[in-house]
């Protein structure tokens, strides 16, 4: 066992670099084994709690977990693009960034694995359809397709492809904002807020442990994303021509994303009657505050303002009110069934 905390001297790797610190912490904290976690905690208690829930409570969990499994799968797929983007000439081509991006890729794959195992072994009665891989001719789970999250993940793929395939710094800023601020920083963290509340009445122990490991990994991904955005912003502020427009791109993307996120928040709360007491208003407020911290505290963005962002969230809340997802879910149910039958 390593009994020392002393830094070991390195050669070509800059161990003082923040990206190195993030990478090293991923090795120390992010290499948990999802299968071992399942064996260690076991499914029994979760199954018991799950079976005691009424259908509406199960539906609320299923809405949350649908967007988590599809979201983790989507970010895992796009991780390869992040590896490519951070090694582009728009950055300093430091190996430390690439080292961290490779850890992120592994972690996102593992998060997908965790939800796949959990769904299969505990929640499967609410998921007749979840097994298809979107890359192998499938679609997202009908619940995901029906709400803002589904749209957001598709948008993420487009933005990440644009950034990785010869995109300029504003393309990279949009992609990083959507992925690290929107999906990881608000949509996922809002999900943790929701699960904390839902766990009060429906304590799914193994699921909670998984969420704890996952959210710890996500914390590093978000720190990484903000670091990357900060590099782009600094170049813009230094007046480097190719980086002009970065701050504006971040702001515009964040405003676009709060629409998808708020719709998702409504979908997992009020639209299903919120049986496990998450509270739609408080959820959106929490998300908007997290976003405000990232954009106006950490990044000190000049474009937009926290007040304008809160307004955008409030507008999105009004748009979401009364949305009916049932018909859309049903439509995607049929499409999914057809795809499963091999059409």
């Amino acid at each position: 066992m390593d009994a020392s905390t002393d830094q070991i001297k390195a050669g070509r790797i800059d161990t003082d670099n923040t990206y190195y610190e993030l990478y090293q912490k991923s090795v120390e904290l992010g290499t948990w084994d999802a299968e071992k976690l399942m064996h260690k905690v076991g499914f029994e208690e979760d199954r018991e709690v799950w079976n005691s829930l009424d259908d509406n409570e199960k539906e609320q969990w299923a809405r949350l977990i649908s967007y988590f499994i599809d979201g983790e799968h989507a970010v895992a797929q796009d991780a390869r693009r992040i590896m490519k983007t951070v090694s582009s000439p728009w950055f300093d081509r430091s190996i430390e960034k690439e080292m961290f991006a490779s850890a992120l890729a592994l972690e996102e794959a593992k998060h997908t694995q965790f939800f796949d195992l959990y769904l299969t072994n505990v929640m499967v009665d609410k998921f007749p359809q979840y097994e298809l891989d979107t890359r192998r001719g499938g679609i997202q789970i009908p619940r995901t397709e029906a709400c803002g999250a589904g749209e957001m993940f598709e948008r993420q793929g487009t933005l990440q492809a644009q950034a990785a395939d010869g995109g300029d710094p504003t393309d990279i800023a949009r992609a990083a904002t959507n992925y690290h601020i929107g999906v990881e920083g608000i949509l996922a963290r809002g999900g943790y807020f929701a699960k904390n509340r839902m766990m009060q009445e429906a304590p799914l122990k193994l699921l909670n442990k998984g969420f704890q490991f996952i959210s710890t990994d996500e914390g590093r991904h978000i720190t990484f994303g903000l670091e990357v955005l900060n590099e782009l912003i600094e170049k813009e502020r230094d007046g480097v021509p190719a980086y002009q427009g970065v701050e504006n791109a971040i702001w515009e993307q964040a405003v676009e994303d709060i629409g998808y996120i708020t719709d998702t928040a409504y979908f997992i709360t009020e639209s299903v009657g919120d049986p496990l007491d998450v509270d739609f208003d408080e959820l959106v407020n929490r998300g908007a505050r997290l976003a405000g911290d990232m954009m106006f505290d950490t990044l000190d963005l000049d474009a937009g303002s926290a007040t304008e962002f809160m307004q955008a969230a409030a507008d999105a809340m009004e748009d979401a009110q009364g949305s009916d997802y049932e018909a859309v879910i049903e439509k995607y149910d049929h499409i999914y069934s057809a795809k499963m039958a091999g059409d």
Partner: peptide
């Protein structure tokens, strides 16, 4: 680090 991911704020909602 579990709590703050290097940021100085306990922003790990999940834990």
């Amino acid at each position: 680090y579990i709590l703050d991911s290097g940021t100085g704020r306990a922003n790990n909602e999940g834990v």
